[in-house]
Write a protein that binds this DNA or RNA. Structure first.
Length: 861
RNA sequence: GCCGCCGUAGCUCAGUGGUAGAGCGCAUCCUUGGUAAGGCUGAGGUCGGCAGUUCAAUCCUGCCCGGCGGCACCA
């Protein structure tokens, strides 16, 4: 008997797939198409377990859909621009371009080793000039359409990475990559007008029914649409300079206008700045407001503080009612108008503030069932539904009706307007970095900012950028930026900012549909393949990449480059790969490979392989370099083969949850691979002639086979790969009851059927093993090109059912009945059964419940 | 605070309105020409807690407890 040797078997089949060009995507009209895509990797240099999991998941889908007769597109590329290359350049003096392409070469070979059913002919990297040049082309289209603009604004500046960050890239006030506290800087910046699509980005989330709710909710929160009212207060008495037209505020609660107590402005509101310039005390207060931290915890606990400006405004519905104007630290300049009217009774923040400064608290929304005479607000604002009272013409209305009425009244008086506002900001896309896609515009002293004509594209990066020191290598290049203005022919300077790498990844899926096309996107190919039917990646991109890609798709559709308005019809967010952590007594982290686990009874202890020094087993955490709890895929491939690694990572947990890597687990998968092979190896090549009628035993095996096909098919369809694999384990265990040695001809034939199904069922998970097994039993061609097995519904269930019999809900016996037996018939069988009868002695039968093919319950007393 | 997910064997996880399952680990035994291995058998579970619906609840409903994730001074 030959031992299974993945080191020989696996490369052999990869070569066979390449030889057959098995995974080339071909648009075939009349055949249903399926586009499966995993988020493409950043070429950091090494494949990690997260990649193994991500791409194995996608590969299961790709192989399964192919077996199901779909024309499948499953491509691979590289998200190749970005800072790590520049950092490597600075640290090690290498060229970012060479570094990146070297990494790509290494990772490509590692990915190929995984045996993925990928059409490698479509591979590209975003740093290929063929790619980013075409990105510049559609960037110019958006420019022309007014979706790109430049403005001076306060931006997030990452002092470590020395670049601007988009709002989405600032997490808890820190740069998402560097972790450095972000500074505010006023810069000329390039923006993409994502807010023009805010409504559609929210509204069409509803159509993405194959996206996780979680991601849709996160995007909805991020866009943060709210309907409300913008209106102006007139000043009473003294009017500050520049505010002759009043003080504009935004509110979502115009129904509570009669509960107004004061008006608040943000510390960096123009009025506050004006006052601060004139009065050092105000300036000191504003400075104090700014000192507050930016983290959630700090904001949470920050006390509300205010400064009474001395100004007063008139209530819009009662000119004799005057409200004081405060500068308050809890008001944000970059939301709404940076000014609010406060209704303490129905807003907690306003209430905290009002209590502190002794301002009136007047309830105007009466909760259902409350008595208007006695209803009072304590330390908790009432924000629920109710009936408006104490509110003149709004009295008696519910909250929604009162909102509409208040807005109508304000609009009629010309004081303001019902408005929808968003938390979403336009996307700042310029980065002051050299290793990125150049923005195709020039600055001309005479003509200003001039977009280049498409005829001069691509604007390629120079090959001799100098990355040895911090800052923008493109800006300091001696000659690159000097050019001529396409409008006037005079001297001009190229824009030296490059595009955010999220721009690169916002359309790559469309380019994959035809990587040869002259134009950025081949309309015909995109129309055939898009949208991506199944997109797979990490949850960390829920509001970054996934939002940008949706926006760019819509914008490109409006420029006529695409037909779809949503790029990803189905989204799956997979969990992370985790591992136990280990530390020495001195607290130093230790890698799993340096540790051996010893079981002492039921407790596990760890020690260093080298010295035997005891090691503390810590928490299970995401594999990371800092905790040193990583396991290198190539070392696993070397020992157990690729299939065992794939199998384990797919079988360990549901794909959306974290998977915990363990040596024991991968060893279990490896043993499974060997047992599968042994089972196939034991099948004789001489088989009985077809048509041998199956006896009971053969029939039982056929039932097992067909049930397994059904269960695995359903599991794969619903992304429960781990369940599917669990069924395959059970299938293999079940096969042991039907050994080839000494089997009768009919059983041997049933075994052949079982194995033929088995090879095809494991093909998406362990493709190399599947080929070897398929070939062993004389399967035709490659299993990668074989159709998915069908199941016979009649065989996927038993002919004879074992029905448990309960008496008063407790199991008291069982009977065997033909499948589909009628309740009356079953009842008779049960009551005739001597064992059951014994159980019922002395009891009166009240009721007999027969659930067809399931169970019988006798209620007796 | 709001929203979402999770709680089943020692561990990692399947599963189902009716009989509780896999891998790993553990124990017993077998094999010793698959051997830095393989196989047989087995033990181990109030299915987080309480209540409700039901003939019957691990599963449905409600409340509670515990863990994880996202959002949040957004007017």
């Amino acid at each position: 008997m030959a031992r299974y040797n993945p080191k020989e078997v696996e490369p052999k089949w990869r070569a066979a797939w390449a030889e057959a060009d098995a995974f080339r995507a071909k648009a075939e009209p009349g055949k249903p198409k399926y586009y499966v895509l995993e988020m493409f990797p950043y070429p950091s240099g090494r494949l990690h377990m997260g990649h193994v999991r991500n791409y194995s998941l996608g590969d299961v889908i790709a192989r399964y859909k192919r077996a199901r007769g779909f024309a499948v597109l499953h491509p691979m590329g590289w998200d190749a621009f970005g800072l790590p290359a520049e950092n490597a350049a600075m640290e090690r003096g290498v060229d970012p371009k060479a570094w990146t392409y070297d990494n790509i070469a290494r990772m490509r070979s590692e990915l190929k080793e995984l045996g993925l059913a990928i059409d490698w002919s479509r591979e590209f990297a975003t740093c290929d000039v063929d790619y980013y040049g075409r990105q510049q082309s559609w960037f110019l289209d958006l420019f022309k359409a007014g979706l790109v603009y430049r403005k001076e604004s306060v931006v997030n500046w990452d002092p470590v990475d020395q670049t601007v960050l988009a709002n989405e890239q600032v997490v808890d006030g820190r740069g998402w990559r560097s972790g450095a506290p972000v500074e505010k800087r006023k810069l000329n910046q390039w923006f993409l007008r994502i807010t023009a699509y805010a409504d559609e980005l929210v509204d069409s989330l509803k159509t993405l029914d194959r996206w996780p709710d979680k991601v849709r909710i996160m995007q909805e929160n991020w866009i943060g649409r709210s309907q409300g009212l913008k209106f102006s207060f007139d000043f009473a008495g003294q009017t500050p300079a520049g505010f002759e037209r009043g003080l504009e505020v935004y509110t979502t609660r115009p129904d509570t206008l009669f509960g107004a107590s004061f008006v608040g402005i943000a510390p960096d509101h123009p009025l506050a700045e004006q006052l601060a310039a004139a009065d050092p005390n105000v300036a000191a207060f504003v400075a104090e407001c700014r000192r507050g931290g930016v983290s959630e915890a700090e904001i949470e606990t920050a006390e509300k503080i205010g400064w009474h400006t001395g100004f007063k405004v008139k209530h819009p519905f009662d000119p004799n009612w005057e409200l004081p104007v405060y500068i308050a630290n809890f008001i944000l300049m970059d939301y709404g108008t940076g000014a609010i009217f406060a209704c303490p009774a129905h807003d907690q923040r306003d209430l905290d503030f009002a209590r502190k400064y002794g301002l009136p608290v007047r309830p105007v929304v009466l909760p259902p069932g409350a008595d208007p005479a006695t209803f009072e607000i304590g330390e908790e604002a009432y924000t629920g539904p109710g009936t408006i009272f104490n509110s003149s013409f709004l009295d008696g209305k519910d909250v929604e009706a009162a909102k509409a009425e208040a807005i109508a009244r304000i609009e009629a008086e010309g004081r303001g307007q019902g408005t929808t506002i968003y938390r979403l900001r336009d996307w700042g896309v310029a980065r002051q970095r050299g290793w990125g896609c150049p923005i195709p515009v020039v600055h001309c002293a005479k003509c200003g900012v001039v977009a280049l004509p498409k005829s001069v594209l691509p604007v390629a990066l120079p090959d001799d950028l100098e990355f040895g020191k911090p800052g923008n290598a493109l800006a300091r290049h001696p000659t690159w930026k000097h050019t001529t203005c396409p409008t006037c022919g005079g001297p001009a300077e190229r824009e030296t900012d490059t595009l955010d790498t999220f721009v690169d990844s916002s359309w790559y899926f469309a380019r994959f549909t035809d990587t040869e096309a002259e134009e950025p996107i081949s309309k015909a190919a995109a129309d055939y393949w898009l949208p991506v039917d199944q997109y797979i990646g990490g949850i960390e991109h829920a509001v970054l990449h996934l939002l940008y890609a949706r926006f760019v798709t819509k914008a490109l559709a409006d420029q006529g480059l695409l037909s779809v308005r949503e790029p990803f019809a189905g989204l799956f967010t997979q969990g992370m790969v985790t591992h136990e952590t280990y530390r020495k007594q001195n607290g130093e982290w230790v890698e799993p490979r340096e540790v051996e686990i010893v079981a002492e009874g039921k407790t596990r202890r760890a020690r260093l392989v080298e010295t035997g020094e005891p090691v503390v087993i810590g928490d299970v955490e995401k594999m990371s370099k800092s905790k040193r709890n990583t396991v290198a895929p190539e070392e696993i491939f070397e020992v157990y083969g690729v299939d065992a690694a794939r199998l384990f990572v797919l079988s360990d947990s549901p794909p959306e949850r974290d998977a915990q890597w363990s040596t024991g687990g991968v060893e279990g998968a490896w043993r499974f691979v060997n047992r599968v092979w042994a089972e196939f190896d034991s099948q004789p090549s001489e088989l009985p002639a077809a048509g041998t009628p199956p006896g009971d035993k053969a029939e039982a095996l056929r039932v097992l086979t067909h049930r397994t096909v059904k269960a695995v098919t359903e599991a794969v369809e619903s992304f429960r790969f781990n369940s599917g694999i669990a069924r395959l384990y059970e299938f293999l265990n079940g096969l042991k009851d039907f050994p080839a040695a000494g089997a009768s001809p009919d059983v041997l034939a049933a075994r052949q059927e079982a194995l033929a199904a088995f090879a095809r069922l494991i093909a998406p998970f362990t493709p190399h093993l599947a080929e070897e097994c398929w070939s062993q039993i004389g399967g035709e061609g490659l299993v990668a090109e074989a159709p998915w097995p069908d199941f016979d519904p009649a065989l996927s269930q038993d002919a004879v059912k074992v029905l448990p019999v309960q008496v008063n809900g407790k199991r008291r016996g069982e009977i065997r009945a033909p499948a589909g037996a009628e309740p009356a018939e079953v009842e008779k069988m049960v009551l005739d059964d001597p064992e059951i009868a014994r159980r019922l002695e002395g009891l009166t039968i009240r009721k007999v419940i027969v659930v067809k093919d399931r169970i019988v319950n006798i209620v007796a007393a």
